[in-house]
Design a protein around this nucleic acid. Structure first.
Lengths: 203, 203
DNA sequence: CACAATACATACATTCGCGTTTGTTTGCTA
DNA sequence: TAGCAAACAAACGCGAATGTATGTATTGTG
């Protein structure tokens, strides 16, 4: 029985993405076979090759599901004109960590990104997109910090660009370290204090 | 012509490790074939299987070559009784980054660790060793910070454990971010300023 | 100086996974 | 109400990589 309706097709697409998350997490992206992903999704490889070009395309789609909402949120923070933008940024960082701790899908996907994939061969383009993404984030944060510096909310001796790098790498490090052994953290509870310490670099 | 002398055998072992670094870096650990490593090393797979049990064993040996010296150095810093231990720690962090920027082997190996390997399957045990290693580092840093707190060199409101986590994750984040695109950094030059910002969390 | 262990090279069997092609059924559309 | 195309399933062909088994020339040793 094939030739489902359009809504059903979209549903199998989501099932495939769910299965990909699960299998990538367990086996790692490189050792994950499309056959196993298909089995977990309850379809055959034919379905995967219908919806996606190959494993890298599947990987990109999987990341896209969790990434897009977060970037919008960050853009809102940056766009804030009135109020203390640095405080808003701090709140955003705390929220980001809390979301990571509570949202199972984000946790899975970022664990895959940090600890279960090798950015070579087919994933090289994905990696370059991630680097470009990082550069955009950095630029936005630098702008924000520079604006706040003119308003006297960032000490004059602090370089906005280096501060942006510091905050960014600190977040990356927390993500990386937490996802390596989530059971040794209580990230939801510790997030505010961790971010407090990090933000001492700008205050 | 086989059955080399012991010194020659040790040399081929090193050649194999060198080749593994190169191929792991290029292909990623999972997609790196022992055949290619053997070719680069100028031997056959037989030689690899003689010196190492499998790919995971080879991986561990490769990491051991760069790791052991650095842990000794850190232990010396922690063991410092007189003087400002936090300053020594800061110097150690700067040195660590500078070493990363200047030492090609460290750069290759840590790039592999952060961006070219999936800790599943055969590498799961290696991963657990890395986690245990991290816990030891954290404990040592926490001890150091607590000692300095009793001497009034760490603000009373700062939790030593959280500060240790913050410094550790900050270093991880810098490593990770730098190794993802080394050409966008001048890490040797920026290291002192970056570490200065990080260490504002403890001063 | 014999001889067993070393330090590999070579050959083999097997498995696995990918990309593609072909087949089949049914939803849509004119 | 044909008939085309969507949405898969099933089958094919192929290369590549792993572990092991066997061969072989030295080399250190008693």
């Amino acid at each position: 029985m094939v030739r489902r309706t359009k809504a059903e097709a979209e549903q199998t697409r989501e099932q495939i993405l769910d299965a990909a998350e699960s299998v990538f997490l367990e086996r790692g992206v490189a050792r994950a076979s499309l056959e196993e992903i298909a089995q977990v999704a309850g379809v055959t490889r034919g379905a995967i090759y219908w919806h996606f070009r190959n494993k890298a395309d599947l990987f990109d789609a999987m990341y896209g599901r969790v990434h897009l909402p977060m970037e919008d949120l960050f853009d809102q923070v940056v766009a804030l004109e009135e109020g203390n933008a640095i405080e808003a940024l701090r709140t955003f960082c705390v929220q980001s960590l809390r979301c990571l701790a509570s949202n199972a899908r984000r946790q899975r996907v970022y664990t895959i990104l940090f600890h279960r994939c090798e950015f070579v061969d087919g994933l090289q383009e994905s990696n370059e997109r991630l680097i470009a993404l990082r550069d955009r984030w950095l630029a936005k944060m630098e702008d924000l910090l520079q604006r706040e510096q003119t308003r006297g909310r960032l000490p004059a001796e602090v370089c906005p660009r280096l501060a942006a790098i510091t905050i960014h790498t600190a977040m990356i490090g927390i993500y990386f370290d937490y996802l390596r052994s989530p059971h040794t953290y209580d990230l939801s509870a510790q997030a505010p204090q961790l971010i407090d310490l990090v933000f001492r670099c700008v205050g």
